[in-house]
Design a protein around this nucleic acid. Structure first.
Lengths: 342, 342
DNA sequence: CCCTTGAATGTAAGCGCTTACATGCTAGTC
DNA sequence: GACTAGCATGTAAGCGCTTACATTCAAGGG
């Protein structure tokens, strides 16, 4: 049956414990449906043999993998790490495993990753943001794979989501910035066309500006990939304009830290010469000097809830309700009043 | 065959393309063994049906998953992110997929994760550091699963590894510190007993001290979990001693950044009042203020090579040779001469 | 003492794919 | 024209597990 060079199978265990494979399987999956002494014999055989079930076979027979997939835009920086960690922990509590893939913020790669995770048998998927080719949603729907969108909230979207209102959160921050007298703003953002979170954040700024009666061209937007270095360069570009902004809002903390660094290199004091703000409130934000004024995102709570919602959906509960969490303004030291001219 | 509510199977595709399942399978796995027009018909059927192969079935039939597992101590900070990213990219180039799990620096969790990845069919494993219950290595060996240890290098270890010499690298740094006149040193480290990298780094410092004729108790070691906050606290503890060290070496950049922050909070100038150094050279090190003097680890190169070695082992090449990479001292601004007394 | 009941276990049919082997054809060779 | 290669394709046997259904047996009821 098994020459010893192969991983032991259910049949090997069954033979050793002198029971049928069905009994061994039951021992593993429903221990209470097996008599005490049989179970003991089987357990012993399992240990002796160092048996562990073959995942592929199991998946195939049971038609589910107990696996949830998540696709995040990037692993390179910590933006998604904390939320994902919480997501994973909570999934673990329910017996599910997490499979992570990253898309490098590219729609085509994300598409491939989604298909790959599905092909690997992900029972459900966690996705960041709503923006996505409808074809993908159709694909997922056809396969009846529960999907949860996070990091964004949109009660109008035809899919459940758990997240916060990016637009309102950024608006609150922009209100504050404008309230401090800034009339000439810069925004360093990820690409806006394909990224609903980035778009919502920009729109939040525009909302605040409109409310304050500022013209739309009082905001200069620079789009750039995420990264400390790219943030620094974008800041440079902004500062080289004829009338450089007095406050530079960044669509996330990583970009903001880059901007902060370049400001220092340019000999600009923050916030005395120019204000800089972030978004996300990752660890970096507290460590930066000056500490970053930013929007705190409830990463862990979001991750945990996402896990619960997905598990509920998988275990046959009703479709999860969209859930709105609060992102809160976190004032630290990088935002100050508009500098006096001269 | 299929009521349309189920994911389409090979058989569905075969029926639609009017060929056998074997031909469809060949089309997917060995396109050049199929006639041009047949292939076209099959491809069309695949697209029409939105077919994607069932992973479990595939694994089972082919007896391999094209998956490599990696277990890292933590995802919470960026220490392993860059190396892992490179690892993943290179694996992808060879058609393999990466599965990541994190152990939270706990040996028991790591053990579980290893078993879980194996159960999921990981064809090979990437592990950080050598320290590990021998039983685990036996388990892996019995299953003939190639293992590569990284982030550490030990030609004497009975397993292939690709990494750098933690001890020599830290010694080089410590030599420099001592050369600057420091005679009273502190070390903030992860737990040393169960972590060969941490141990090697400490030993590197002791080597340098011995060479300079310093007594062993000129080094005060504080062990703490990794984190910015814990680094800050450890620094505090160190500074409250009767004769606080003039140079605090940290076993990684994350701890060092915490130390840096606390120093600032305590009103200490770095490096004028106290020197602080890191290890790893993650992005954080450059952004910190003052920029961190640290040891640069060739993350990307290490990840890329690790992937190549594992792939080679899987494709039946000879066992990979242990590979030593260089970690280099990176002088920035947080290390200076010992302060003048008074 | 026979029958019913239900707990414990066994039997065996797939799950969707890969692949060794068999078959059928076309084209080239003498 | 018969024969051989060799390519394209088909047939069918698993891969290791789960689970519906069948069987066995002991205990309790009439």
């Amino acid at each position: 049956m098994n020459d010893g060079r192969q991983a032991p199978t259910l049949a090997d265990v069954a033979a050793r414990a002198q029971v049928s494979t069905a009994t061994v399987s039951r021992c593993i999956n429903f221990p209470d449906r097996v008599a005490e002494d049989t179970r003991q014999r089987v357990t012993e055989a399992i240990n002796d043999l160092g048996y562990s079930p073959n995942f592929g076979a199991r998946v195939m027979a049971a038609r589910r993998t107990m696996t949830v997939g998540a696709i995040i835009p990037t692993m390179e920086n910590a933006i998604f790490a904390r939320g994902l960690q919480a997501f994973q922990e909570e999934l673990g509590n329910h017996g599910y495993t997490l499979l992570v893939a990253s898309s490098s913020y590219r729609a085509d790669l994300e598409r491939d990753q989604i298909k790959a995770l599905v092909a690997r048998g992900a029972d459900a998927l966690l996705l960041i943001g709503h923006d996505r080719d409808p074809e993908i949603y159709r694909f997922l729907e056809a396969r009846q794979i529960p999907v949860l969108v996070t990091w964004a909230f949109d009660p109008a979207a035809p899919r459940p989501s758990v997240g916060f209102d990016n637009r309102a959160a950024m608006r609150a921050l922009a209100d504050r910035v404008i309230g401090l007298g800034h009339r000439n703003l810069g925004l360093i953002s990820a690409e806006i066309a394909s990224n609903d979170r980035a778009r919502a954040r920009r729109d939040g700024i525009l909302d605040a500006m409109a409310a304050a009666g500022l013209p739309r061209d009082a905001l200069t937007v620079i789009e750039t990939p995420y990264g400390i270095e790219t943030g620094a360069e974008a800041f440079d570009t902004l500062m080289q304009r004829d009338a450089p902004p007095t406050a530079v809002l960044c669509a996330n903390d990583v970009l903001a830290v880059g901007a902060l660094r370049r400001a220092r290199e340019l000999g600009l004091e923050v916030p005395d010469d120019v204000s800089i703000t972030g978004f996300d409130d990752i660890e970096l934000a507290q460590v930066a000097l000056p500490a970053l004024t930013t929007v705190h995102v409830p990463h862990r709570d979001m991750g945990r809830r996402a896990a619960r919602m997905l598990v509920a959906a998988l275990e046959g509960g009703p479709a999860p309700e969209p859930t709105l969490l609060q992102a809160t303004l976190t004032m630290r030291d990088s935002l100050g009043p508009v500098p006096k001219p001269g």
